[in-house]
Design a protein around this nucleic acid. Structure first.
Lengths: 337, 337
DNA sequence: TTGTACGCGTTATCAA
DNA sequence: TTGATAACGCGTACAA
């Protein structure tokens, strides 16, 4: 049933090595031989075994995407499909396949370093920065194994991320342009890098307009609808309440909208609300939310490119960082006319 | 740098075959030998090459998930992460990895049948029924290659799906229980199996209550917010308007809610609205939507199990079908008190 | 219980 | 331009 390179060689009356060269389109094979052998391959319906090729070439033609399926990894969860699509679009055309692996390991022998790296199941790795810890990155560096992080990681790792600082500036500047002047910021934990980045952008935009970020306008916490609601309530019940809020997520913004509605505060007339992420709610709230869209497909594409660069470029390459620009989507929640 | 089975054998003063047997925990190796060899494997940081193992065993220990990244495959898109998690949870513990492959192929040689099946990159396939066409299924059957469809496909294919008919009954029966008596159905195309199933469930529930489904209560179309809005508007502007609507998707339901709001029709008092799917909007509409939740992780688990069953069970197995039960989530949009 | 020898399907290195 | 043969790393009869 299964036809191998030897069968083709026999049928074509040539040596295995000749068939192999035809497969790889070697320049040192005559035109006629190539055509004849290829013809026979069609006829016999031959496809080379990727496993045997991999063994001979010492490469799996496979790249791994690491995920932590245990903690509902909020970020990846939403954009998984797009990121995968992006990665696939670049590695696929280079004849690589994508293997998804869960980092949850029961026994130490099941650790992905063994399952994927040491066993040579993949030639390179892409992983979220929450998965790619500093210790792991160090180990991969030691092994000179190619990897790219999605999200910023410490040197000397290479990574791709969205420009969160720029995002913070964009949202805040937009609110200022719409004549909001007292802008609050809700959601996110102080010790998260992503909060720091976004907050810095927010503060920069304020400063550029001669304003300063005051700490009682900042409320940290889990960026879901409940905390968003509570945070907004706290801010809005203050007599000196803000006239705009930048929210870490669209869920937090949803909570803020609820709070405003309950307090009879009109959005956008009396209060502007802008959120960092677009999916999945921003289009569907009342009023619809002004938010920042991120091109997650492109995130996949970029990480794929960077990884392939490292795989083919050897281990001497300097580390690289890529910041992708978010896009501002204007909607009713900040449209004052 | 790389340590092979021969290195271990040399270091342990045994034959390669002995090391191999230790690796596979063969019962015909003495306790002491095993311990000693294993000790050395630890010390030398040895992990067997999955490629070499695969070649020797004629199996890749890899299963493929096929997706069509081109058309934003509405269904998979949303639940990709959960489905993958489900599949991974069952195949991962069996030492299999998951390869994601895009069925979009530029050249015929890039067709996944070559890239994955003929080249033996994967030992089995899971795919959405929109990808796994009848022709493809027939070809896989001919090759005796194990596969499972997510979503119903014609015999003799094996598949896993949600019980859409049951879902239609559940939503409709619930509405009847809430004393709604004139129930409409919007969204979905006549020629889609999924519409037929759901509609049949709806019609069955009506019949069981002595009612009949009348065709002017059914509006077909794309199940997004625009069509949902238009359909609801049409229904609700009729003097003989329905007092409840079953919607094919939460997006269509979102549109229906909009229409009701514009017409000043109170939901749930004057109009009950229930939707088939829970994510991502149903929790966040005003009022929140009663909807059907589907356990997509379980969908992944089931398809994984069925596939492994076929892989290990040989090719003589009869085809199997699995229907998963949806879960009714009660919310304000149908709560009449 | 352990070891020898060969096979798995391909690539790579030389000769011819 | 083509061919013989040795890797690649592991599994497995079969023999010892």
């Amino acid at each position: 049933m299964k036809v191998t390179i030897s069968d083709i060689a026999k049928a074509a009356n040539v040596a295995k090595s000749t068939v192999s060269k035809v497969l790889n389109d070697s320049p040192k094979i005559s035109r006629e031989t190539k055509l004849r052998v290829r013809q026979i391959m069609k006829e016999m319906n031959y496809t080379p075994s990727s496993i045997a090729t991999g063994l001979a070439r010492q490469s799996s033609y496979n790249i791994g995407l690491l995920v932590d399926m245990s903690k509902g990894s909020e970020f990846l969860n939403q954009f998984f499909y797009n990121i995968i699509g992006g990665i696939e679009s670049v590695i696929g055309s280079l004849k690589y396949e994508l293997t998804i692996a869960n980092v949850q390991h029961s026994s130490p022998e099941d650790h992905f370093l063994n399952r994927l790296v040491h066993s040579k199941r993949v030639d390179g790795i892409i992983a979220n920065n929450s998965v790619l810890t500093e210790a792991l990155a160090a180990e991969l560096d030691r092994l000179q194994f190619p990897y790219i992080a999605i999200g910023e990681i410490p040197a000397p790792g290479s990574w791709v991320d969205f420009d969160n600082e720029l995002g913070g500036r964009m949202l805040t500047q937009h609110l200022l342009t719409q004549r909001y002047s007292s802008i609050a910021f809700i959601g996110g934990q102080r010790d998260e890098k992503i909060f720091t980045r976004r907050y810095n952008g927010y503060a920069q935009a304020l400063e550029q307009s001669g304003l300063t970020a005051s700490q009682d306008r900042i409320i940290n916490g889990k960026a879901d609808e409940h905390e968003g609601y509570r945070a907004a309530l706290t801010l809005l019940q203050n007599p000196d309440r803000p006239d705009a809020i930048v929210c870490m997520t669209n869920y937090a913004a949803f909570g803020a909208l609820q709070a405003a509605r309950e307090l009879g505060i009109n959005v956008p007339a009396e209060l502007g609300i802008a959120a960092f992420d677009e999916y999945p709610l921003s289009r569907y709230t009342t009023p619809p939310l002004t938010s920042l869209n991120i091109d997650t497909f492109k995130l996949g594409v970029s990480s794929g490119h960077l990884l392939m660069e490292r795989i083919s470029g050897g281990s001497g390459l300097p580390s690289r960082h890529l910041l992708l620009e978010p896009e501002l989507i204007l909607r009713e929640s900040t449209t004052r006319n």
